[in-house]
Protein backbone atom coordinates (compact mmCIF):
# COMPACT_ATOMS: atom_id res chain seq x y z
CA UNK A 1 0.00 0.00 0.00
CA UNK A 2 1.35 3.39 -1.00
CA UNK A 3 0.07 5.92 1.52
CA UNK A 4 0.78 9.63 1.21
CA UNK A 5 0.42 12.32 3.84
CA UNK A 6 -1.41 15.30 2.37
CA UNK A 7 -1.82 18.70 3.96
CA UNK A 8 -3.70 21.94 3.68
CA UNK A 9 -1.03 23.96 5.44
CA UNK A 10 -0.43 26.59 2.76
CA UNK A 11 -4.12 27.48 2.42
CA UNK A 12 -4.60 27.49 6.20
CA UNK A 13 -1.56 29.73 6.69
CA UNK A 14 -2.64 32.14 3.98
CA UNK A 15 -6.17 32.21 5.41
CA UNK A 16 -4.86 33.67 8.67
CA UNK A 17 -2.53 36.04 6.83
CA UNK A 18 0.79 34.54 7.95
CA UNK A 19 3.95 34.28 5.90
CA UNK A 20 6.07 31.13 6.07
CA UNK A 21 8.60 33.05 8.16
CA UNK A 22 5.98 34.32 10.62
CA UNK A 23 4.51 30.84 11.10
CA UNK A 24 8.00 29.40 11.52
CA UNK A 25 8.85 31.97 14.18
CA UNK A 26 5.54 31.36 15.97
CA UNK A 27 6.24 27.65 16.45
CA UNK A 28 10.04 27.80 16.74
CA UNK A 29 11.20 26.10 13.55
CA UNK A 30 13.05 27.30 10.46
CA UNK A 31 11.24 28.62 7.38
CA UNK A 32 12.54 25.68 5.35
CA UNK A 33 10.61 23.32 7.63
CA UNK A 34 7.35 25.12 6.84
CA UNK A 35 8.27 25.21 3.15
CA UNK A 36 9.09 21.50 2.93
CA UNK A 37 5.96 20.48 4.89
CA UNK A 38 3.77 22.62 2.61
CA UNK A 39 5.33 21.07 -0.48
CA UNK A 40 4.95 17.54 0.90
CA UNK A 41 8.71 16.98 0.81
CA UNK A 42 8.98 16.53 4.57
CA UNK A 43 6.57 14.63 6.82
CA UNK A 44 6.35 16.44 10.16
CA UNK A 45 6.46 14.69 13.52
CA UNK A 46 3.27 14.47 15.58
CA UNK A 47 4.61 17.22 17.83
CA UNK A 48 5.23 19.57 14.91
CA UNK A 49 1.86 18.77 13.33
CA UNK A 50 0.11 19.59 16.62
CA UNK A 51 2.09 22.82 16.99
CA UNK A 52 1.14 23.86 13.46
CA UNK A 53 -2.53 23.08 14.09
CA UNK A 54 -2.49 25.07 17.33
CA UNK A 55 -0.78 28.06 15.72
CA UNK A 56 -3.30 28.10 12.87
CA UNK A 57 -6.32 27.46 15.11
CA UNK A 58 -7.33 24.34 13.22
CA UNK A 59 -7.84 20.70 14.27
CA UNK A 60 -4.81 18.68 13.24
CA UNK A 61 -6.90 16.24 11.18
CA UNK A 62 -8.16 19.10 9.00
CA UNK A 63 -4.55 20.11 8.26
CA UNK A 64 -3.14 16.64 7.63
CA UNK A 65 -4.76 13.53 6.19
CA UNK A 66 -3.74 10.28 4.54
CA UNK A 67 -4.44 9.79 0.85
CA UNK A 68 -4.60 6.06 0.05
Amino acid sequence: MNETLCNDLKAAREAVGLTQGALAEAIGVSRKTINTVENGVFQPSTLLALKLARALGRPVESLFWIAD
Binding site: V29, S30, F42, S45
Partner: peptide, 9 residues
Protein backbone atom coordinates in the same frame (compact mmCIF):
# COMPACT_ATOMS: atom_id res chain seq x y z
CA UNK B 1 21.27 27.57 16.71
CA UNK B 2 18.10 25.68 17.69
CA UNK B 3 16.44 26.82 14.45
CA UNK B 4 19.51 25.60 12.54
CA UNK B 5 19.05 22.13 13.99
CA UNK B 6 15.31 21.68 13.75
CA UNK B 7 13.33 18.67 12.46
CA UNK B 8 14.08 19.25 8.78
CA UNK B 9 17.79 19.72 9.40
Amino acid sequence: SRLMNDETT
